[in-house]
Design a protein around this nucleic acid. Structure first.
Length: 606
RNA sequence: GGGACCGUAGUUCAACUGGUUAGAGCACCGCCCUGUCACGGCGGAAGUUGCGGGUUCGAACCCCGUCGGUCCCGCCA
């Protein structure tokens, strides 16, 4: 149907006869001559329709509207000097049409303009309803190409490293831990249900037991939880697992993988190895396990200074087992007014959203003088003030903000304020600046955290992470005592405050696996019912193994600079997990439900 | 489950404090135009202000409900 792509035509093609297909991006009808911008996947080129080429051709051209699909035959020719358009890659030439076929018309009005010349922002609701039109636009096309390149680069790298891609089931078994499952009723096995995988975790471990040694998969994962800008009910992981590799080797391999993606996709050399923080360091210094450490304002623990002072908000918090921590904002005296940190202010309300009751502050003046509320100032001795200023490395002109209370709330509050202020004061590097891409490994996560609602320990990552050998020791008899306080051989890759991926060394010992399941409160019976196949496999020659999974959608979001992963996915869902284009989910017939032995408990509204 | 914001011609936006016939750009339709490239000129059509109810002499605007979208908390790694 076509001999060339529109966007590829250059001066070299002058005098050659070409056939092109594509969409009308725009037309300019001058009465005597008509210019058509013809667009295909490669770009656009100007088609010139001259009445001298025949009245039939010309009268067809007069009827053309935006987004009509046409086929053009014509001759490439140089534009007159005064008509050269430097803004276009194809701006030196044009195609003089000799024949023009309409391949498809546009009926009625377009829901929105496709041409990239119309940069007006179209409501996302419309973009999603007519996603195929949105995909024709430059932005989505660019994002999907970049996504493709990201995945291709990963495949090439892993191929070179001896990995093989294996597909794992989408219809699988519901598991008790983790997110809510999407369920699929089985027709054949009456009354029983499949679940869609939250990740291929167990299958990839079983591939290792199966001797595959190096596996990867671009795997679709499903989680039936509420959505966010960076969360979709179905999303894609680059899932990797390998045998006979320790944590150090796995991290090395993966930072090379990430560096090669950034090199291929963005042309940027990312220095390796990536910096590392332990989980404990991350939480203590930044209040979160995925810190953005491109700007300062680290958290300072001032419990020792504040524990006995007369200001009860501070000393009382510590007495109850909580903490007092603070961040120093360089030059904050000028950049942040009191109104903003007092009740009703924007910074105060950020603290409130994190669960804080208040937001204490100290303004640092010359000669170690401070300004703050009387209740704090009157209760601090000058040596305590000097100690505080030293601890926080504060100078005259700085502003110190405090969180006091339950330690997790203090961390959450200061983490949130830190990020908010960095954004407000424009402390975050721009994409063209050198330290914009800030990769970080966070390691040594705890194995478990306490779930206060259910009053039991929960796996922080998942219950298949191997504990740290030093923490656990060699005596199985002491495992039940040592496990709850052990660190895991688990790691997360963090980029600019976003978690890109995470993984761990897995347990390959059946006894230890059972002990971990017991620790999170699964009885032996339930553990066997849910994970018997895994335990059996671990008893039949499982190699030491570990791996990682990266969130492809998030990686592409960062590479494209988009603020939502929806813009990296061809057909995403709305926050109500609905597809506006197909209108899924939708009702099914009673007959279908009956076959599946499923009945709705919703009242019939018909 | 909870909080915040949004919904006006096909589309992007406007419409003062509740006050005449809800306006404009682009798109669309008609006419004119041979070098434009976000072409230009003249004219035209286009609206259940998401939907339902209420308050009011009077509602796009205020109130209640509902549907849809976005962001966030809870939830989720």
């Amino acid at each position: 149907m076509r001999s060339n792509d529109c966007g590829d035509l250059r001066s070299d093609h002058i005098a050659s006869e070409v056939q092109l297909c594509g969409w009308i991006d725009r037309c300019r009808d001058h009465g005597g001559v008509i210019f058509l911008d013809l667009r295909d996947q490669s770009g656009t080129v100007q088609i010139t329709v001259d009445p001298n080429q025949g009245p039939e051709l010309f009268s067809i051209a007069e009827t053309l509207r935006n987004e009509t699909v046409i086929q053009v035959t014509g001759c490439v020719r140089a534009r007159p000097d005064e008509a050269i358009n430097q803004k276009l890659n194809t701006g030196n030439i044009e195609v003089l049409a000799s024949d023009l076929q309409i391949l498809n018309q546009v009926k009625g009005n377009l829901p929105f303009s496709v041409s990239s010349h119309d940069e007006e922002s179209v409501k996302e609701e419309l973009r999603l309803r007519y996603r195929y039109l949105d995909l024709r636009r430059e932005r989505m096309k660019r994002n999907l190409k970049l996504r493709h390149k990201t995945i291709q680069t990963a495949r090439a790298y892993l191929e070179a490293e001896g990995f093989i891609e294996v597909e794992t089931p989408v219809l699988t078994k519901s598991t008790p831990e983790g997110a809510r499952d999407y369920l699929v009723p089985s027709r054949v096995c009456e009354g029983e249900w499949f679940a869609l995988p939250q990740s291929p975790q167990l299958f990839k471990q079983l591939l290792m037991v199966g001797g595959l040694e190096r596996y990867y998969q671009v795997a679709r994962c499903f989680r039936d939880e509420d959505l966010r800008a960076d969360r979709q009910p179905e999303f894609t992981q680059l899932d990797i697992e390998m045998s006979f590799m320790d944590q150090e080797q796995i991290l090395n391999l993966n930072e090379k993988l990430i560096a090669s993606i950034w090199k291929q996709v963005k042309g940027i050399d990312i220095p390796i190895p990536f910096p590392r923080l332990t989980w404990k360091e991350a939480v203590n210094q930044y209040g979160t396990d995925r810190p953005d450490n491109r700007y300062g304002m680290e958290l300072n623990d001032v419990n020792d200074i504040m524990q006995d002072i007369g200001f009860k908000v501070f000393s009382g918090a510590i007495a109850k087992g909580g903490s007092v921590k603070c961040i120093n904002i360089t030059g904050g005296n000028n950049s942040i007014s009191n109104v903003r940190i007092k009740p009703g202010g924007d910074i105060f309300s950020e603290a409130e959203k994190a669960g804080a009751g208040g937001l204490a502050f100290i303004r640092v003046r010359e000669s170690n003088e401070i300004d703050t509320i009387g209740a704090i100032k009157d209760n601090l001795t000058s040596s305590q003030i000097i100690e505080l200023l030293n601890r926080t490395k504060s100078k005259a002109g700085d502003l110190i903000l405090f969180g006091a209370g339950e330690t997790t709330i203090v961390h959450k509050t200061l983490d949130r304020i830190r990020q908010y202020i960095a954004k407000e004061l424009k402390l975050i590097p721009k994409e063209n600046q050198k330290n914009y891409w800030n990769f970080l490994w966070v390691t040594d996560f705890p194995m478990f955290e306490f779930n206060t609602e259910e009053k039991r320990l929960e796996a922080l990552h998942h219950p298949f992470c191997a504990p740290n050998n030093e923490d656990l020791g060699n005596d199985p008899k002491s495992w039940s005592k040592l496990l709850p306080k052990s660190r895991a051989q688990a790691y997360d890759l963090v980029l600019n405050g976003l978690e890109l991926g995470g993984g761990s060394i897995r347990i390959h010992d059946a006894k230890l696996q059972q002990e971990v399941l017991k620790t999170i409160g699964l009885s032996q019976e339930i553990a066997n019912e849910q994970f018997g196949f895994l335990i059996n496999a671990l008893e039949l020659g499982a190699p030491p193994h570990g791996g990682i999974a990266f969130g492809i959608d998030r990686i592409v979001m960062l590479l494209t600079g988009e603020e939502s992963i929806r813009d990296t996915i061809a057909f995403p869902k709305t926050q109500q997990a609905r597809c506006l284009m197909t209108e899924a989910p939708a009702n099914v017939s009673k007959k279908q439900l009956k076959e599946l032995n499923v009945e709705s408990t919703l009242k019939d509204t018909e």
